[in-house]
Design a binder for these strands. Sequence first.
DNA 1: CTGCTAGCATA
DNA 2: GTATGCTAGCAGA
Length: 926
Amino acid sequence: MQKTLLLVDGSSYLYRAFHALPDLRSPDGAPTGAIYGMINMLRRLRHDYPAAYMACVFDAKGKTFRDDLYPQYKAQRASMPDDLRLQIEPIHEAVRIMGWPILMVDGVEADDVIGTLAVDAVKHEMSTVISTGDKDLAQLVNPYVMLINTMSNEKLDRDGVIAKFGVPPERIIDYLTLVGDTVDNVPGVAKVGPKTAVKWLTQYDTLDGVIANAANIGGAVGENLRQALDWLPQARTLITVKTDCDLASHMASIPESLTQKPEDQAAMVDFFTRYGFKSWLRELTGNPTAGARPLPAAPAHAATAAVQAGLFEHGADAQAATHPPLRQYETVLTEAQLSAWLARIDQADLTSIDTETTALDPMTAQMVGISLCSEPGVAAYIPLAHRYQDAPPQLSRDRVLTVLKPWLEDPTKAKVGQNLKYDAHIFANHDVALRGIVHDTLLESYVFESHKSHNMDSLALRHLGLKTITFEEVCGKGAGQICFDQVAIERATEYAAEDADITLQLHYAMWPEIRKDAGLTHVYEKIEIPTSVVLQKIERNGVSIDRALLSVQSHELGTRLLALEQQAYTLAEQPFNLNSPKQIGEIFFDRLKLPVIKKTPSGAPSTDEDVLQKLAEDYPLPKILLEYRGLSKLKSTYTDKLPKMVNPATGRVHTNYAQAVAVTGRLSSNEPNLQNIPIRTAEGRRIREAFIAPPDGVIMSADYSQIELRIMAHISGDANMLRAFADGIDIHRATAAEIFGVAASDVSSEQRRYAKVINFGLIYGMSAFGLAGNLGIERAAAQNYIDKYFARFSGVAQYMADTRAQAKARGYVETVFGRRLWLPEINSPNGPRRQGAERAAINAPMQGTAADLIKLSMIAVQDWLERENLQSKMIMQVHDELVLQVPESELALVTENLPALMAGVAQLKVPLTAEVGIGKNWDEAH
DNA sequence: CTGCTAGCATA
DNA sequence: GTATGCTAGCAGA
C-alpha cells in the first residue's frame, strides 16, 4: 500500500466549523466563520497528510434509503441556521477552486459515499485517511483505513477505536445500535449507554449474541432490551454505513478522478477578497509580510475584541481569529509575572477566571491556584499552595490575593467563569468578595440548551470541538484520587489554564447564540446571572440547626424503631432486615402468601407505600412496616444526617443550590437537600422545629399561593379561572362548583377534595388513567370529570392543545419570560416516551414560569435588603417559598414588604399573592 | 469501590 | 400524572 486516499467528511465539518468559530463577517456583512474554518481545515489537512488522491464529500439533496426506512431519521435535527445556509455555496466554491475533487451524490449520504470509496480504495491497493468529526465512521476503520478529527487532533486506527469505545471497529455497528444515535434521532436500547453496551458486547461478543441472550439479562435494562428487540435490526440498518453505493455515474474512475487539480489562483484571489481573508490574500499575491507569519497572541486578541465590538462587518481580518489552536499557557511564579498579568486583566474587556481548590465543598475548600484568561489561547495559572516534595517556590496566597483583590472586588471589571458561584465561595473563604460577575458559561449553556449537559468537558466538545483535560486525568478517581495541591505545577498549569481558556472561548461561542433571542437574553441577564449572585449569599448565610433537639428525636425514633422491629419479627416468625425490599418481598409473598398488588419495573412484587396501605387493611405486618418505613426515613435522612452537615466554622448548615440541573428552570438543593424537609405528617414536621431563628429574631416564611394554577390561568386566559382568581375565592372550591354544577357555598368537602386532585392533575398533564388511580375511582368516571372540567374551562383545554402542538412543532415550550424548555422526546416513535414528553410539555411552562417568578423574587428581596441595609437574611428557597431570618427589630418592616415584593415581580392577568408566617422555628412559621 | 434499584421526602 | 435528591440494600467488581 503505497498511495494514500484522503477523504474529508465535509458535511460533518460544516456544523462544527460554524459553531466553533466566532461570528466572522465579510466586508459586506455576509457570515464567513464556517467558510474560514473549512478552508483552514483543508489547508492543514493537505499539509499534514500529503496524499496522492483526495476528495471532499458532502451530503446532497434528495431522500436517502434511511428516510424511506425510518421517517423520523434526523427528525430531531433543527433546521440549518440561516447564517450557515448562506455559507454552503461559498464553501463548495472554495473547495473547488482550491483544487479538491468534490463529491455530492443525490440520494446518498456523505457517510455512504465515504464508506464505498474506502472499501474501493483497498482494491486499488491504497490506504485511506478519513477526516471526520462523526464517530459513526469508526465502523470503517481497518488496517488500511484510519480516521482523524482535525478539530480535536484525534487519530483513530484500530487500537484507537478500541481505546476510545472499548470495542473493535467491527463491533462499532453493534455498539452504536445498542447505544443509539441522538444526533440522527436513531434510538438504541433505553438506558443503555457506552458502559452497558461494551459490557454486553464483551460478554456476548456480537449484537446477535446479545439479542440471543436477551432473555437472560436482568434488571430494567434487560427489560428495555427485550422491548427493543423488534427495533434493533432496523436501527442496525440505519447505523450501518453503506460500502456498496453505485458511484459509477459520478466519477470516471477511481483513482484518476480523485487526483488534486491545480488551484485556480485567480479565482482564489477573487474569493479571498470577496470574503475578507486578507492574510491568505497576501500569501497568494506575494506580499512579503504574509505567509511566514505565525498566528501569535496579538491578532487573536484583536479578533476577539473585534467580535465583541461587532466590528467584523467593517472588514477586520477574519483570519486572525482562533486558528491554529493556541495554548500559550504561563505559570506565574514571580512578582513580575503577576504584575504583568494584573495589567493585562485590568485592561481587558472580559476575563475568565477559575480557582483550583482542596475540596469540592465550597464552604470549606481552600484555594490552591487561580487561572486567568482574557484572550482565547493565552492563559495564566498562578499556583499558590501546591505542596509536594520538591514543589517550586510559589507566590504566597496572601500576597497574590492582596495584589488581585482590588481587581477581583471591582464590579466594573467584567468576569466570566464556569459556575462562578463556586469560585465566589472560594474567594469568600479567603475574605475576597468577588464582584463583576457578568457572565457564566454554566448558565449560558443552561439557558441555551436546558436539557443538555453543562459540564465544561462536554461543552468544549459540543461547542468548540475540543477535548479537554479532565479533572480525573489529573487527579485520578475513587480512593486513588489526589488533592489538587499534590499535582505537579506543570501539569496543573496545562489543566487549570486550559479551563480558563476554554471558558472564555465557550462564552464567545454561546453568548452570540443567546443574544439572537430577546427572551433568552432576558432570562440569562435579568434572571439567571443575578440569581447566581443571590444564591451564593443565601448559601453562605446558611441556616441554624438545633442539634440537641435532633439528637433527642433521633434517640426517640431509634427506640420506637427497635420496638417495631421486634413486633415485625414476631409477626413474621423470623428476623429479617426491614430496610430490604427484597427480604420483605420474600416474607410477604413467598412465606406469608400475601397477594401481589403491583410489580416494580424490574418485575419484583412491589412493597411500596400504596401496596402496604392496601395490605394493611387485611394483615397486621404491613401496618407495622409502614410505620417503620416512615420513622426510619426520618431518622436516617434527617435527624441523623442534618447534625452531621453543620459546618464547624459557622455552626450552620450550608446547602448548595444547583442552578443548572432541573430542566424546567427550578433550583435543586443538595448536601443537604433542604427542599424536601418533611411537612405532611405531624411526625415529620417535628424536623422543622430544629430549623431555628437566632436568639434575637424569628424565622419568616413567605410562599406564593397557588402559583402554578395562577400561571395556568394567565397563560390560558381562561375566563372562568381568571374570574375566580380575580375574585380572590378558594380556587378548589370554585373548580368544584363548576364541575359539579353547584353554588360555591354548596360545595361539599368531598367535592372540593376531588376538584383539588383534578387541579393538581392538570398541572401534571394528567390522563384519565392517572386521575382514576389517584381518586380510587373507575377510569370512565375519571374521564367524565375531565370532560366536565374542560367543558367549563375551555380556555384551559385550548391551552393544553396549543402547548402540545407547539412542543411538537418546535421541540420546545416557553415560560412567560421566554425561557425555553426543550423536549427531546416529543416526536419519539416510542409511544410511552412521547406521551411522557407531552405531559412534561404541559407541566413545563407552569413549573418553569413559577421558577422564573421566585427567582425574580429572590433578586428583588436581596436587592431591597441590601438597599435598606437590613440585618434580615434569606436563608432558604423551596420552589414557591422563601425563608428568612429576621431580627425582632425588623419584624414589622419585613412582614409588610416581603409579600409585596414577591407579589410585585410581574404583572400577570391574575394577582400574585404571597402568604407570610412567623415563628421561632420553621415549623411555627407556617 | 461503583453503579443500580426501590422507596420516599418536597414543590 | 410534573420536577428533584438521598438512603439503604445489593450485585458485580
